[in-house]
Computed example of a mutant assay.
Amino acid sequence: MNLTALLLLASDQPGPIDNGNDFWFVPAATDYADTHDWVYSVVLWLSIFFFILIVGVMVKFAFDYRRRSNFEAAGHGPTHNVALETVWTVVPLLLSAGLFLVGIDTYADFKTAPANCYEVDATAQKWAWQFDHRNGASDSLVLKVPVGQPTKVTLRSNDVLHSFFIPAFRVKQDVVPGRYGSVWFTPREAGIYQGYCTEYCGTGHSKMNFYVQAIPADEFEDVIAQDARWIDDYSGDRLVWAGARLFSRCASCHSLKPKERMTGPSMWDLHANWGKTKKIEVDGKITDVTIDENYVLESIVAPWEKIAPTYLNQMPANFGQQLGAKELDALVRFVRELDQVVDTNGELRDEPVSTTN
């Protein structure tokens, strides 16, 4: 079972909005998206109209005044026409001013969030997103928001330039290192919508995607409260399944398949070599280390300390700081006991239903 399927099975909401074979935009899911599409359509059809008009006149003139065999030089024509010059100056000026006013009004609406927004922090780093709610709930794959209530997402980057884009909401904002940015939107319907990073940020850029789950307002508070304490439902032998959930934060850089190289090493390869030694660069020198619980834990909380010779130091330095002790333990167990939760094709098995409350 892949991570997307796991997400959808865990949700009572509809699946991702299906764009089918539409040539045009994905269906609008916010009122702002409707306004955006209207402005776009006005500009597009005006451009098409004037393109056809101007090119049509050019073609007509080229045909009417083509050189003929009985060509005779014409005398001087009119030097100017006040009425015509006034029309082709005033009409484009009025159209341009009108488009500017409509555009600036739409842009101001996009940049000015209402006072009653639900607020979420989004952190971008190669090559994943981190969504942090004010109650402590956190996720790197799904941004959960309430239906019918404005949501403001405050954006920042831990490394390079990224871009936050949700097509169905028509919101896009560059995420610049050293600066804060924001977007806001109000989902109209419950569902799951696709989001992307749309600024090339390195080799893992194409995998830096996420989902937005719009949840009915009367259910949202309970869902977010549960998310803040979700790991409390896991203990003992089931803690490895908590690690499987947490691995969604790692999936853009690490594979679960044997011998599949990505930005970081395959988790299956680490598991298959558990207890064995491998060559690692420590302080500029190659040395042998044992793949065990301590090695995995240190690779999470201090990833710059020990680097495999064929890999670069690209693990986010603050990743371990985002996790509690139980979450760190769950990830270590996930690697150690990987064959219990992942099959040999690198697919997550179905999580057994807990028999405890």
Rank of each mutant, 00 (worst) to 15 (best):
T203M: 13
P146W: 00
V240T: 05
F169M: 07
Y200I: 06
P265R: 07
F164E: 03
F185R: 01
H254K: 04
R134A: 15
A244D: 01
E219H: 13
L161N: 11
Y211I: 05
Y200E: 10
V240D: 00
S248K: 14
E221P: 04
A190W: 10
S248A: 15
S140N: 11
Q213K: 08
C197L: 00
Q149M: 05
L239F: 05
D227G: 12
W241M: 09
V175K: 02
F210K: 07
I215D: 00
P177S: 04
G178I: 05
R156T: 13
L143I: 02
S235F: 05
H162N: 08
A225M: 09
C253T: 07
F164T: 07
V171S: 02
Q173S: 10
M267I: 06
V176T: 10
H162F: 09
I192P: 02
D227W: 13
L143H: 08
V171A: 03
K172P: 04
D227I: 09
P265D: 08
G236H: 05
P187W: 03
A168M: 10
Y196D: 08
V171Q: 07
D232G: 12
I231R: 15
H271A: 12
Q194R: 15
S206Q: 12
Y211G: 04
S255C: 01
N273C: 05
D222L: 12
G191Y: 03
S248G: 15
W241H: 06
N135W: 10
P167G: 11
Y196R: 07
Q194D: 12
W274R: 01
L239A: 05
G243F: 00
E219W: 08
Q194I: 10
V183S: 04
Y193N: 09
N158D: 14
H271G: 07
G136F: 02
R229V: 15
Q173K: 14
D139S: 11
K259M: 11
T154P: 01
H254N: 03
G178V: 02
C201Q: 09
R179H: 07
F185S: 01
T263M: 13
C250T: 02
I192G: 00
P258W: 01
A217S: 14
T198H: 03
G202W: 06
D159H: 03
F165Q: 14
A214H: 08
M267T: 05
R170D: 11
M267A: 11
Q213C: 08
W230V: 15
G178C: 04
A242P: 08
P187F: 01
P187N: 04
S252F: 01
F164I: 07
Q173G: 10
R261S: 10
E260F: 05
T154M: 04
N273D: 04
S252H: 09
I215M: 03
F185P: 03
W241T: 01
I224P: 07
D233S: 13
E221S: 11
Q226E: 15
V175I: 12
Q149Y: 02
